[in-house]
Computed example of a mutant assay.
Amino acid sequence: MKILLVHNRYQQAGGEDNVVAAEAKLLAEHGQEVELWSVDNKDLPAGLKGKINTAITTTYSAASLAIAQDYLRTFKPAVVHVHNFFPQISPSIYDACMTQGVPVVQTLHNYRLICPGAMLMRDGKICEQCIAGSPYQAVRYGCYRGSKLGSLVVAHMVATHRKQGTWSTKVNRFIALTDFAKSKFIQAGFPLEKIAVKPNFLHDPYAGINRLARTNPAFGLFVGRISEEKGIKTLLSAWSGLAGHSVLKVAGSGPLEDLLQDETNIKALGRQNASDISQLMQQAAFLVLPSEWYEGFPLVLVEALAHGLPILASRLGSMADIIEDGKTGLFFTPGDANDLAEKAQWLLEHPEQVEELGENARRVFLEKYSSEQNYAELMAIYEAVQ
């Protein structure tokens, strides 16, 4: 099958880029013919004129339409899989596909199509006003990068295509990463029958090798962006209340990383590469994910499951679709530092139970999130739209 993948990279590389690369590699390894049309926001035109042009073309880009049509004529794909069109490619990609009679699959990596801020979050709290209400509410609050003008541009894109029925008539199948995410898009008016659920996946880090038993793991691990929506303040408050010398290792960077410097039992490691993260996951007692927004499907969760690492996470949004409380990890109340500290202390003091949770996590990974399972699910989606 010929498959055209379409992706607009953000200026700061993130999980979406990794998912696109992993799926492209997976498809190619199974003999599919894959072409990637990728643009990068690092190449956005600078200056006032460039910003104005980007703002105008975010809702619909004639230039991208022409490029898309050229890809379709020359490559002749059986299906086009759009991962992200914002802001350079724009929804014009859908019209190019309709003209050529090529079915479209769209992965919903975040909530951009129903929320200008993409996170269903405002002022550090969950916000669902734009799901059923006007997306122009985002302008009042500057939901897109704190900019009212930028929020107006994105809100116009969301509102225009909602009114035109783009999401219901021009996309053959959406891929939501969890059942929870699917429910939010259905609330926003997306057609139930067009949304499939397929999680992210990971190539098995232990493929062909034996997984070593953990030797006296004595620290918790956080991997991700050091920012407010990730629950960093709650995490720091919780860890300051833990007994003894319980260590938390933090891998990542972000706007709140300076808060880590004054904590004696927290080791700030900075940004780590994939190999370093894998080694940390083989040594840690558990991964802590204290997010206070509706996470999509962070790859760090799949990594933890693949490494047989239990997860201590906030009971929020998609987490309940991924983590099984008492089986592959534990939940705590979002934003509740005392509850987080209590659960972390229990995990650090019960290594045998933690080992059992880890074995369950590894088993769930092999059943649900392996590359082979994901390939079968992805191809079934492609074949269903033919």
Rank of each mutant, 00 (worst) to 15 (best):
V104R: 01
M1S: 10
G133L: 00
Q279Y: 01
M157Q: 12
L36P: 01
I323A: 03
R271V: 13
L366P: 04
S183L: 04
L316C: 09
T160W: 14
A268H: 06
S370D: 09
P310Q: 10
R162V: 00
A181K: 04
G270R: 06
E352M: 11
D204A: 03
E295M: 04
F86S: 01
I114N: 00
P217I: 10
D70A: 12
G47V: 06
T160N: 13
G329L: 12
L48D: 11
S38Q: 15
H7K: 08
N200C: 07
M121P: 00
K76A: 14
T166L: 14
E23S: 07
E16I: 03
E359R: 11
A251R: 00
L299D: 03
I322K: 02
L378R: 09
L236Y: 01
I131L: 14
V139L: 10
N374Y: 05
A155R: 00
L330F: 15
V197C: 06
M319S: 06
H307N: 13
I232P: 07
G146K: 09
L4E: 04
S90Q: 10
W293N: 00
L301M: 13
K198W: 04
V385G: 03
Y71L: 06
E349I: 01
V364C: 09
S151D: 04
Q88A: 09
K327P: 05
E229Q: 14
A155P: 05
E29A: 15
K249N: 07
A176W: 00
H30R: 15
E303H: 07
Q282C: 11
H307F: 11
I175T: 09
G47K: 12
S134N: 12
E324D: 09
L269S: 03
S371F: 00
A66F: 13
Q283T: 07
Q137P: 04
Q164C: 06
T58E: 13
L152T: 04
A380Q: 15
I209A: 00
Q88S: 12
H156Y: 06
F180D: 08
V153Q: 04
G254F: 06
N41G: 14
K327H: 11
A341Q: 09
L4H: 02
